[in-house]
């Protein structure tokens, strides 16, 4: 905060005293935003917990209709993309704007792959009739509760997919800025906070994956 040396002030907004204050504000801002996001998903996790406790058997049945392998591959994709984003932040810190851009673009492409696989899964659910409401076709013992599982599944993964979509666009744009040499080891907050956001998207999936895909396997 008391850094008075004449560092490069490219990218310093007028209302900040110095780069350090600006960087610290951006980082804290993203953390606070992520807390908001956690509470946003938190409401859904609460609903999930309430109904899973009430209808455990139905949850197992619903989980059996998940495509275990697609879910697992998607988990691996997201984890790897998170690693790439971490590498991108490192690259920009050491001044390698081009490497940073490449990492971000690959991570963004992996996000697209995640969405594509998710789309395949959704399609399969539609074909199978595992969609609550009028399109429901599954013959299961307690259809209301299983529909509830799928409803929560669609809302949670849908909200997550929305976040992935935003993240894909964000990483692509930040990558583009990086490729044009906009960042420096002094000014790289956008890369850093976008990275935080992507890790958050990843972490949410780390919770969704076992909660939705692995219940059936726990029973076996």
């Amino acid at each position: 905060m008391h850094d008075s040396s004449a560092v490069a002030t490219h990218g310093l907004r007028h209302h900040f005293a110095d780069m350090e204050q600006q960087r610290a504000s951006a980082t804290l801002g993203m953390w606070v935003f992520l807390v908001t996001e956690i509470m946003f998903f938190g409401g859904l996790f609460a609903a999930y917990l309430v109904y899973r406790t009430a209808h455990y058997d139905a949850w197992v049945i619903g989980s059996e209709h998940m495509n275990f392998w697609l879910g697992t591959i998607n988990t691996v994709i997201l984890l790897c993309s998170s690693l790439l984003v971490a590498l991108a932040v490192h690259a920009v810190q050491v001044g390698q704007n081009r490497m940073c851009a490449i990492y971000l673009w690959i991570a963004s492409a992996m996000g697209v792959a995640f969405l594509a696989l998710k789309g395949i899964e959704y399609h399969a659910h539609f074909v199978e009739g595992a969609v609550p409401g009028a399109l429901w076709k599954l013959a299961v013992p307690d259809p209301r509760a299983v529909q509830m599982f799928f409803y929560i599944y669609f809302v949670m993964t849908g909200l997550h997919a929305l976040h992935v979509t935003i993240g894909v666009a964000l990483l692509a744009v930040i990558g583009w800025h990086a490729a044009r040499g906009r960042y420096s080891p002094v000014y790289y907050s956008p890369v850093h906070v976008s990275g935080l956001y992507w890790h958050f998207v990843d972490v949410v999936w780390i919770f969704l994956y076992p909660l939705l895909y692995l219940i059936a396997h726990k029973k076996a």
Partner: peptide, 13 residues
């Protein structure tokens, strides 16, 4: 109303 929700042990739904 929802017989499948809580099935008594030893009976089929």
């Amino acid at each position: 109303l929802t017989p499948g929700a809580k099935v008594v042990a030893g009976f089929k739904p």
